[in-house]
Simulated scan of single mutants.
Amino acid sequence: MTADPASRPARERLLAAAAELFYGAGIAATGVDAVLRRAGVSPATMYAHFAGKDALVAAYLEQRHAGWRQTWDDVLAEQTDPAERLLSVFDAVDRYRSRQGNGRGCGFLAAAIELPATHPGQRWLEADSRLLLDRLRTLAVEAGATDPDDVADTLLLLYDGALNRLARTATTPDLPADDPLDHARRLAAEWVTQTLRAPSGS
């Protein structure tokens, strides 16, 4: 039986409220009072767990990064074909979106627009970028790519484009109805197949 949300620990409720509101409405547009109301906690309770809004934002991004990384780990554990493992980033986003909701695009890309360079949440934006680049490059090496850096950069370009298009679709109803992630994955699959088949030095 699922526990009553009100019986969950205060820190858990605060993070759940922050995740919903920061992602749904934006970090700058969401005040601490809105998070407190959604979580059902007092200011004193929040400050017992977080030093302020900046610390809460950083904790939200840390939790989001952990959830995203675990989802990608799970998808990779199910795949053995080298080319499919390269494309796993799109499958992982699709799974993450189905579990967590990702209709407004990437939470990290959205946060990157809002947070100043000195914000403590920048640590997790950097961790997300590093995870994407490092893992895609590693998968490209495992797949036998002759230029793994180019493969990682190209797949990341398609990935970022799909998530940005997803965010635009949420606010622009007359855009084409096809799923940007599906479209990006198809393009990536075609490109990966051609790239892995190309003779070395071509």
Rank of each mutant, 00 (worst) to 15 (best):
T138G: 14
D94Q: 13
A162P: 07
T118N: 04
R99Y: 08
L139W: 06
A66Y: 11
L109Q: 12
T193I: 06
A59W: 10
A18C: 05
E114F: 03
D74G: 09
A25W: 07
H65W: 15
L156D: 10
T45E: 12
E12V: 13
R123S: 02
T2H: 14
R168W: 11
R197Q: 10
W124D: 00
L36H: 05
P120I: 01
D4F: 01
L21C: 00
V141P: 02
M46W: 11
L157P: 00
R123W: 04
T154M: 10
A145C: 05
G144T: 04
G121Y: 12
G31P: 00
A140D: 08
T71K: 09
L166P: 01
L61Y: 12
A177I: 06
L115F: 12
H49K: 14
G161I: 11
V93D: 07
A55M: 13
A77H: 14
N102Y: 15
Q63G: 10
R104S: 03
R69N: 13
A10P: 05
D179K: 08
I113Y: 12
H49Q: 15
T30D: 04
P116C: 06
D178I: 07
F90S: 02
Y96A: 12
P9N: 04
F22M: 08
G144Y: 06
D150S: 05
L187F: 14
D54Y: 14
A66I: 06
R85H: 12
S42Y: 11
L163K: 11
E126M: 05
D153Y: 11
G24I: 01
V57N: 09
S88F: 14
R37V: 04
T71L: 08
R37D: 05
Q122D: 06
L14D: 03
V151L: 05
L21S: 00
L125Y: 03
T2N: 10
Y159W: 10
R185G: 03
P148W: 08
A167I: 00
G161Q: 12
E190G: 07
R99A: 08
V192H: 03
R135E: 12
P173W: 13
G161F: 13
L175G: 02
L136V: 01
D33C: 01
D81E: 15
R168E: 15
I27S: 00
A167S: 07
V32A: 07
L21K: 02
K53L: 07
G52L: 11
D128G: 01
A167Y: 04
S7G: 00
R85L: 08
N164F: 15
H183L: 13
P43A: 09
A3G: 02
G26D: 02
V32I: 02
